[in-house]
Design a protein around this nucleic acid. Structure first.
Lengths: 335, 335
DNA sequence: TTGAAAGCGATACCAC
DNA sequence: GTGGTATCGCTTTCAA
């Protein structure tokens, strides 16, 4: 059997309640009692039982990280978010519970917030984000959305600026002389693609360039879809001379498909990806990409959540963080 | 307030204990009672409170995943392990708690197993693996070591075959005509490097090649160390014509350093990495690498842990899984 | 087959 | 400043 507070009480000849207070640095406790109790706890090797404490306190010091798990992968993207989250959580004495959302995400979320297994939730991606948000909102469960914004005024989120990212990238291409620029999204990133293409349109408008709707595409999820989209784009009359892809793996697929089709990158076709994944630096030519502050997003989201947990009346955290454009060889060549 | 078992009891006009039995499909309960209770639970939107259940049952249905967090990253490597773990855990009704081990790992581990916040632990890497294992072992806490073996007979582990991996890779290089082959390890992977270099020596011995100890190195952790090691190797009289690196990022650093030094890969220098990270495919030339079945390791480790949890007397899980050598351009060229 | 009652281990209120 | 006691929500003997 594990050592309990009762054992300590017997050991120091005091009541369990006093021991509890001493251990938790309760105000009305004598310094001497505190030190005796702490000493005893150390000697006996006492550790508070999590479940008992959770039950009584009505809080667990755990928060959940839920993410779409449709492709059975946890990507570099999620990892980098988690890094920020976990470091902040650890410091604040919180642990992170992983919730891969498969099957029926909404039912799963319901159970998560009703069983009290975590105090709050961080929401990344997932197919049913809007419904998930509505669900948690109506359950009054503390949560923060990661890397997506929300129009609902009381919903907390921390996101990179998808609109600005596209503006930045598109301007870069225009400055390089490109006039026919494609904008590639992905089915699983609907909201982001909307923001991106809006930024893209804005940058074109600034330069008085016309939008060719055939150059704005959203590809399906699986691998191969990017290559196919690329071939489709190259088949358009007056094909694009530049592509803005919604994430690096997609950009890399495009790059490889373009090369396979005999195009030189960036001379015949410039390509921009997003997220600054490792592979974007490893590929030849290196990939110009948008660098979102993922660890920072994770950190700020966690901090926002902690604030809400400490004070439920505190205002929601609504942050849109600037991104950086990393210019590499896929747009400007190696010279 | 949330709905409790008591509310259901009132609702169906039965005692809480009967309700509990019905909900848990207790043997001695009438079918009708069960269905009435279940119906009521659904109507009222009842979800059992995790902390209360955990306390009473003395088990949490959570398992911890602990990992070294020294570089503030969760790499693609860990992600792939986690994928296997989390999928299996989810199916078995277990959740995964993340424990980044920073600061004092041993104290942290002690607290983890004594507070009963998780039922078991999966251990990945970390600086003090041997001590951690000893600690958990003496606490009789259920755990499985990931991607490392253990000589202790009762310790569970699931690992890829590091020895065989090196044999395979070295034989491949020898078959290509290489006679001067370097073997690069990393400080944070002491045990693995030992297994690797043993396999390397074995393959050399098979081919009656002499071992040049100057070609067996262990580099420090940070970035840049690989490039420096590469320069050091190239400065040896009769420099190596091939390098076997302990992981892909290190191999890529070597590759880039070699190219920077005017060597052609693979003509002047062949390079093999390990772990089949995405970047190994993105780099030019593509990197020959060892592919360990990471998701499979995660899955089997989790299964082994579940077995132990179900029956503490069950034998330890001790698995060494074969790896594959993915031959790419960094050893055989693109032709 | 059901119900009453005793905890699981900690916290917090209320006396003293 | 300290101790008794109720309680958090659920499971599980034991008796009826």
């Amino acid at each position: 059997m594990a050592i309990t507070i009762k054992d300590i009480a017997v050991y120091v000849n005091m009541s369990p309640s006093t021991v509890s207070k001493a251990l938790n640095d309760y105000p009305g406790t004598s310094a001497e009692t505190k030190s005796r109790v702490h000493a005893a706890a150390r000697e006996l090797g006492y550790y508070p039982m999590a479940a008992a404490r959770d039950l009584r306190r009505g809080k667990t010091n755990r928060i959940g990280f839920s993410f779409g798990f449709s492709h059975n992968t946890i990507g570099e993207f999620a990892s980098r978010l988690i890094v920020g989250v976990v470091a902040t959580a650890e410091q604040a004495g919180y642990n992170l519970l992983l919730y891969p959302l498969t099957g029926k995400p909404l039912e799963r979320l319901t159970s998560i917030c009703r069983t009290g297994e975590v105090d709050g939730l961080l929401l990344m991606g997932g197919e049913h984000l809007a419904e998930s948000v509505a669900l948690l909102q109506s359950a009054r469960f503390p949560f923060v959305v990661l890397n997506r914004s929300s129009a609902e005024p009381d919903v907390s989120f921390v996101t990179s600026d998808h609109f600005a990212a596209a503006v930045l990238a598109t301007r870069h291409l225009i400055a390089l002389g490109h006039r026919r620029i494609a904008c590639l999204g992905s089915a699983s990133l609907g909201q982001v693609h909307a923001d991106r293409s809006a930024g893209y349109r804005q940058a074109l408008a600034e330069a008085d360039l016309e939008v060719d709707e055939r150059l704005i595409l959203s590809v399906a999820g699986g691998p191969g879809a990017g290559a196919q989209a690329m071939r489709q784009l190259l088949a358009v009359d007056q094909p694009p001379t530049a592509v803005l892809a919604i994430h690096d793996p997609l950009a890399i697929e495009c790059l490889q498909a373009a090369v396979a089709a005999g195009r030189r990158v960036p001379e015949d076709l410039a390509i921009i990806g997003s997220d600054n994944l490792r592979s974007s630096q490893a590929i030849q030519p290196t990939l110009t990409t948008i660098d979102p502050p993922l660890a920072e997003i994770g950190r700020l989201a966690m901090e926002g959540l902690l604030r809400r947990l400490a004070d439920p009346a505190s205002p929601p955290t609504r942050l849109t963080l600037p991104v950086t454009l990393l210019v590499r060889e896929s747009t400007v060549g190696s010279g």
